[in-house]
Design a protein around this nucleic acid. Structure first.
Length: 611
RNA sequence: GGGGGCGUAGCUCAGUUUGGUUAGAGCACUCGACUGUCACUCGAGAGGUCGCGGGUUCGAGCCCCGUCGCUCCCGCCA
């Protein structure tokens, strides 16, 4: 719950108190309250109403000793979710009537006057839910969001979200960061995710884009001399959704000048620590660090979940000596044999291990080799190929299951990553209360297309390479590491960023390597940032955190939809107001837009059907 | 773009396997009873285009085809 230090500011001309804060020390006071009828219990001679506002519930009691007959009659008649104003006296409950699981359970309000100011139709969804009730369908919750958002759980999530926003603002502002806003109508970006486009009325055939992030603007702020910037920025990406992905989302976006990587990491750790502290969790600093290379080698993943180990190892030397076709071929083709040892995995059935193999194949691997060591014997298709040396090198212990993928790293890493995660889940190694923060550093500057060999920026084209890597391998950019970093918690990426290139010479080298050496092409795509950088740019860098995901983690929600007031469905629709919709021809004409006739469809109507 | 799950009363679900009389339950709702409940209790009642369209059949909630919506995942997305 988020309340002002002095909760009396919540008093208004219509109410003296919020509902959920009445306590024993209020006994004897005459109070006026306003709220929603959460539940009511009509006993004939007595009526009880649980009155709800965002601070909680309090029991109203109506009885012949203190309520006039007409007051009691309207209390008995008022429907749930109606809004009422009441006046009455706070009284202590008898000891045997105290409700211990209710914050206001020691008191109740004996009502002398009641006004139904907002009568409610029977709600389409229950707001007050009984123990064991299942949640209404997501579709209905979104369609009737005005009711869903009344539920105390969702209110708590959004109130926590508010508190986290305040903490972020306070932390950054106290550290000299300026909250600066950037445009929502902006220029389409040439790469990355698909843009949401907005047609221009004034300029026929031209379009704005909604920002995927304020990336370019925040670098321009650095060029302007606003040397510390932040923004709680709404970002838009027109890609397909997931439980943890919405088309519009919120980032805590940060950029600073005259800094190096260590400055950003320290500042960002401080922010994360203060956010988690607000949610009641102490996080130790500094966060451990791991290079991208080590993360990929040991976990097959650039955001490893360190709550359990099950680290991957390189078994190529073991298999190189064996006469086994699959592994020999893979090694001869430049691949490696990597794998992991699963203690206790030998107890799994053939079928269970087949399921792991299916996961590995789903991630692109050709197969998953297995060997188990149980009751002193090796078992599995490759068991008979194992020499004494190989057995010694594997060092399996009783009950172990060893799993291998023989392939190039770009295939074995994602496959073994999935296998490792599933093994941890099966062995129940994941403790929800564990929080393993991690910085992943030294991302590669480029990734090579396995077919064409073309280079693409892993982060973005303005990320700075390690100066020593350029010096050591001037002609092997694939070996360059970037000054880029990700903040990871329990296998989830919370945020990431980089130190930017501010040296024009390095920047043009980067463009050339990325295949955009043509100056006109550079200007067309990045002109306004390049102009800014040429006009005198300080060394700068930054980071952005996915705020919705952080709010989701800290509230314990399992979907972003539970920490966003009005989220979209997986089809990017807003069921509440019914967006998107077809618009009148007149509006399209003004925008110089024509809709292809065969895709014209109406908005969804209340029965869920297309018009 | 592809795959899985779901769609029956206001809400949550059963019924679909094997097509067959009038589609059921709990909660909510309406009416009645009840002076200490807090998931009040008890009695009575009302409430259904079985998502939508088409097909097969003497007959479809159930089988087939299409479609719409929600959801999870892959692709996509940093």
């Amino acid at each position: 719950m988020s309340l002002p230090a002095d909760s009396s500011v919540l008093a208004t001309s219509l109410r003296t108190d919020p509902c959920g804060l009445l306590r024993r020390h209020d006994v004897g006071r005459t109070v006026r309250l306003g709220g929603w009828v959460h539940r009511s219990r009509d006993l004939g001679g007595l009526v009880f109403i649980d009155l709800r506002d965002r601070t909680g519930l309090v029991q109203l009691a109506f009885g012949p000793g203190w309520s006039a007959p007409e007051v009691q009659a309207s209390a008995a008649a008022v429907g749930v979710e109606s809004v009422v104003l009441v006046e009455g006296e706070v009284v202590a409950r008898d000891a045997d009537r105290v409700k211990a699981d209710m914050d206001t359970g020691e008191v109740e309000v004996r009502v002398t006057a009641l006004r139904v100011v907002g009568p409610a139709v029977t709600p389409a969804l229950p707001v007050a839910r009984n123990r064991g009730d299942k949640m209404p369908a997501e579709e209905l919750r979104l369609r009737h969001r005005y009711l869903d958002l009344r539920r105390p759980e969702l209110q708590e999530n959004l109130i926590l979200r508010h508190r986290l926003l305040q903490v972020a603002r306070r932390y950054l502002s106290d550290n000299g960061y300026l909250e600066l806003e950037t445009p929502i109508l902006t220029k389409p970006t040439p790469e990355g995710a698909r843009d949401y486009l907005v047609p221009s009325r004034v300029h026929p055939g031209e379009f704005y884009a909604l920002p995927q992030s304020p990336q370019i603007y925040k670098q321009l702020f650095m060029c302007c001399g606003f040397d510390r910037y932040f923004q709680i920025a709404r970002c838009f990406r027109d890609e397909d959704l997931r439980a943890d992905r919405q088309p519009e989302f919120t980032q805590i976006d940060i950029e600073a000048s005259f800094i190096g990587q260590e400055d950003i990491l320290a500042m960002a750790e401080g922010l994360v620590v203060s956010l988690w502290k607000e949610a009641g969790v102490e996080v130790p600093r500094p966060f451990p660090r791991m290079s991208y290379a080590e993360a990929m080698e040991r976990y097959g993943c650039d955001r490893p979940d360190l709550r359990y180990d099950l680290a991957l190892q390189d078994y190529t030397p073991v298999f190189r000596a064996l006469d086994f076709g699959v592994t020999s071929t893979a090694i001869a083709n430049g691949g490696r044999v990597r794998g992991l040892v699963v203690p206790g995995g030998a107890a799994w059935s053939r079928k269970q291990v087949d399921e792991l193999e299916a996961l590995a194949k789903g991630a692109g691997a050709g197969g998953l080799l297995r060997v188990r060591f149980a009751e002193g014997a090796y078992d599995g298709p490759i068991a008979k190929f194992l020499t004494d040396d190989a057995r010694a090198a594997l060092a399996l212990r009783e009950g172990d299951l060893a799993l291998f993928v023989a392939a190039p790293d770009r295939i074995s890493s994602p496959a073994l990553d999935r296998v490792r995660q599933e093994c941890a889940r099966r062995l129940d190694l994941v403790r929800d209360t564990d929080r393993r923060f991690l910085w992943v550093l030294d991302f590669p500057m480029f990734e090579e297309d396995p077919d064409t060999g073309a280079l693409a920026a892993v982060h973005h084209p303005f990320t700075s390479p390690h100066a020593d890597d350029i010096a050591a391998h001037p002609d092997a950019p694939a070996k360059w590491r970037a000054l880029a970093y990700d903040c990871v918690l329990n296998g989830t990426e919370l945020g990431g960023g980089s130190i930017r290139t501010s040296d024009p010479a390095v920047q043009s080298r980067m463009f050339a390597l990325l295949g955009i050496g043509d100056v006109e092409e550079q200007e067309r795509r990045f002109g306004f940032l390049l102009e800014g950088l040429r006009a005198g740019a300080p060394p700068h860098g930054g980071i952005a955190f996915g705020f919705d995901r952080i709010a989701m983690l800290l509230s314990g929600a399992t979907s972003l939809r539970d920490v966003i007031a009005f989220p979209k469905t997986t089809a990017a629709r807003s069921l509440f107001e019914g967006a998107p919709v077809a618009v009148a021809d007149k509006d399209l004409d003004e925008l110089h837009i024509a809709v292809a006739a065969d895709v014209t469809r109406g908005a969804i109507s209340p029965d869920g059907q297309g018009a």
